[in-house]
């Protein structure tokens, strides 16, 4: 460094490098949109739940069983997120419940803008509960707020009871964890629901967990009562 002129060495240009502080959240746009969605939900008295799990853990089946169980009691609407196909929305509509499909294409998660777009095709008037079934994925959906009031994370008994330890971020942020397909436990010797519960509770000591089967209806009572209590 040359003391006189401040240049690096003679012959090269003076170094005018400067550090500019920013401090801005990288997801600020999504967070803003999520707050806006929340305003829509709150204005209409709708409770919105974000359902997340690995692909095929039983999210849509749980919704179908829940819709049947709460028929005549609570008004439900569903937003379905999938990489491709309208299949899940068709399954829901068969139960007489309005459902909008979002096909995300390449995106591995729903974001708040996609949910807002879906709201254009869905009347929330008179709806008590809005379920948002996220793309089957235990990593990406966790980081993107949608405006939901609570996160529900499913873990099916065919997945391994150490999943909560392998994907701690998503299980930690859950308001409720559902261990699904419990009817299959009799056929499996390597899934111990207690081990799964312990793994969840290491992340969040008081997190409520249900062990249930959408197929037989066993264990659904706690989940249904929780939903009833969310009604506003």
């Amino acid at each position: 460094m040359c003391k006189e002129c401040g240049c690096d060495t003679h012959g090269t240009a003076p170094n005018l490098s400067k550090r500019i502080e920013v401090i801005e959240n990288l997801l600020s746009e999504n967070d803003r949109q999520a707050l806006h969605n929340r305003e829509h939900f709150d204005a209409l008295g709708v409770t919105a739940l974000n359902l997340m799990s690995s692909p095929g853990s039983g999210k849509t089946s749980l919704l179908e069983a829940t819709i049947e169980a709460l028929a005549g009691e609570m008004k439900i609407a569903v937003i379905e997120g999938d990489l491709e196909t309208e299949n899940d929305a068709l399954r829901i509509r068969r139960h007489g419940v309005p459902a909008v499909q979002i096909t995300t294409g390449m995106a591995c998660h729903l974001d708040a803008a996609m949910v807002h777009d879906a709201l254009h095709d869905l009347s929330l008037e008179g709806i008590d509960l809005l379920f948002i079934e996220n793309v089957g994925n235990l990593v990406c959906p966790a980081g993107f707020a949608l405006g939901q009031h609570a996160d529900v994370v499913l873990l099916s008994v065919t997945e391994g009871d150490d999943k909560p330890s392998k994907y701690p971020v998503i299980f930690r942020q859950a308001s409720r964890v559902l261990i699904t397909k419990a009817d299959l436990l009799a056929h499996l010797d390597d899934f111990d629901p207690h081990r799964a519960e312990d793994a969840v509770h290491r992340l969040s000591a008081d997190l409520p967990i249900d062990v249930l089967s959408a197929k037989t209806g066993a264990g659904m009572a706690g989940w249904l009562d929780w939903l009833r209590a969310l009604r506003r």
């Binding site: 240009a13 003076p14 170094n15 005018l16 490098s17 400067k18 550090r19 500019i20 502080e21 920013v22 401090i23 801005e24 959240n25 990288l26 997801l27 980081g143 509770h201 969040s204 000591a205 008081d206």
Partner: peptide, 24 residues
């Protein structure tokens, strides 16, 4: 006890950047 409030670890932000407007 198992009730812990997270005080950091949720960050996801751009802190700063280095600009080099070297004269050419």
């Amino acid at each position: 006890g198992g009730r812990i409030t997270v005080t950091s670890g949720q960050e996801l932000y751009i802190d700063s950047f280095e600009a080099t407007d070297a004269l050419s």
